[in-house]
Write a protein that binds this DNA or RNA. Sequence first.
DNA 1: GCCGTTTTCGGCCCGACTGTTTTCAGTCG
Length: 573
Amino acid sequence: MENRDIARIFNEIADILEITGGNPYKVRAYSRAARNIEDLSKRIEDICREDKKALREIPGVGEAIAKKIEEIIKTGKLKKHQQLLKKVPPELLELMQITGIGPRHLKLLKEKLGVKNTADLEIVCKQHRVQDLEGFGEKTEKKILDALGDFKHSKGRMKLDQAKEYATSIIQYLKEQDKNINTVETAGSLRRGLETIGDLDILVASKDSKKVMDSFVSYPEVKTILSKGNTKSSIILKSGFQVDLRDIKKQKLGSALIYFTGSKAHNIHIRKIAKADGLKINEYGVFRRKKNIASKTEEDVYKTVGLKYILPELREDRGEIEAASKDKLPNVIELKDIKGDLHMHTRASDGAHTIADMVIAASQKNYEYVAITEHSKGLKIAGGLNEKELARHIKKIDKEDKKIKGIRILKGIEVDIKDNGKLDLSDSILKELDIVIAAIHTKFNMNKTEMTERILKAFDNKYVNILAHPTGRLIGKRKPYEIDFEKIFKVAKKRNIMMELNCFPNRLDLKDIHCKMAKDIGVKIIISTDAHSKQQLNNMEYGVITARRGWLEDADVLNTFKFNKFIKGIKRT
DNA sequence: GCCGTTTTCGGCCCGACTGTTTTCAGTCG
């Protein structure tokens, strides 16, 4: 039983209680517990086995929920959950995802019209039976029907790079429409650098709020206008994604940015602290009674509640508020700290460019070193190299290294870890290389024990330096394979093997919480683009933002080290 | 259901927009 499965059970309990009119604070308690369980870097099953009392140390987990967790781990399910599901089955719960339908509406739809799923809902809307319900009307009925269509065609969440593109285009458009706009900022999960983004939040400080709202809703890519007001409007793009725009006064930018950047849990936590001091925080500022005492910058707002400035990437209520109050926030890495990119492909396997193309592009980023790392022979579809081909490639790399000045080129490989944990190339050629990255590209469906053993077996090879994309996930496409992170990290630390943080926007692997876990155990991370073209070297920014979300500092990331220190640091033990 | 340098009981974050209303509930973020 994984943490996310346990979290799902509590989330469903929260939803059902909300629909059935349970105590709203109880609802909140369940969803808070669920969120904190999902965020844990340690498996809850392990925590429970070692010391049951430790469950209570998880924020939001008290006596009752701790008992329920024990029951889930012991029996694989929860009686209370099963009973509640009889009242509100999962396909009815799903309707809560539809924009405009909340617990109240759903309750009425179920009780008065017997709606059980999306199909039922569509029928009763088309029969115009919804508009007669108390509190509903013609417009609401039409809205639900439209939202139902959007829901069915919804594309889920955007990847980080995609979200950034959409946001950049909209911002550029808004600035072209109104030259008097002072400031345009992205907020929300995009600013926090989440791996996927549900919708975009944009803040503007304009002189003419009507004008900016008008131009926003007439953006050419708009499919539906959800709402339009003086200070706030929401639209759905043709691509299916929602964008919210807020117009705010420039002198209130700080409090607005905090409010709209979130996360929700982070904001609730700081408002709670404020309240304990007799203060109130909203998007317009910090208030003592009616007096606005801070709003202009984010620093000002944090200061009023006794906190140091907290970077957006850290705002998840995962301990950053406690750290800020003690001035113990991490000094997280920045893009400019990266001194080399150690995972990239060229035409020799499945890349688009030559060695020289890649290296020159990398040197324009002021890197001190790069590694060229093709695939190995087992990965035929990607043009993997065998021992003979790799030997020739090594010579080519050496030649380019002599030719291209100002940057060091390391000879590397991304060698496949076979099903049995052995590597796909012989030691006699691996020993000729500066960097060996081991990776799994086949047979993803092994169970957790088998997969962990497979990786640990690969670590037995004394030439392995880095484990690439450690969980193999492709966001929205392929689940991560299950591995025992703690075991792998501990062995890796002992043998001085690094974990990769792969920068591909659909990988971002390791993910943020696992970066933090690696840091706590003491394993070093290497942030690499895995670029298959010159342009993809730019993906470094997505890896760095993920590393920041994982609280990583320069000392935790080996490729922030200068060349000599890096070479010493990568030596196997 | 959780939680406590005010509290082991009584609180629990805050505001905009919409639609259906005659003053506000529901939804959303």
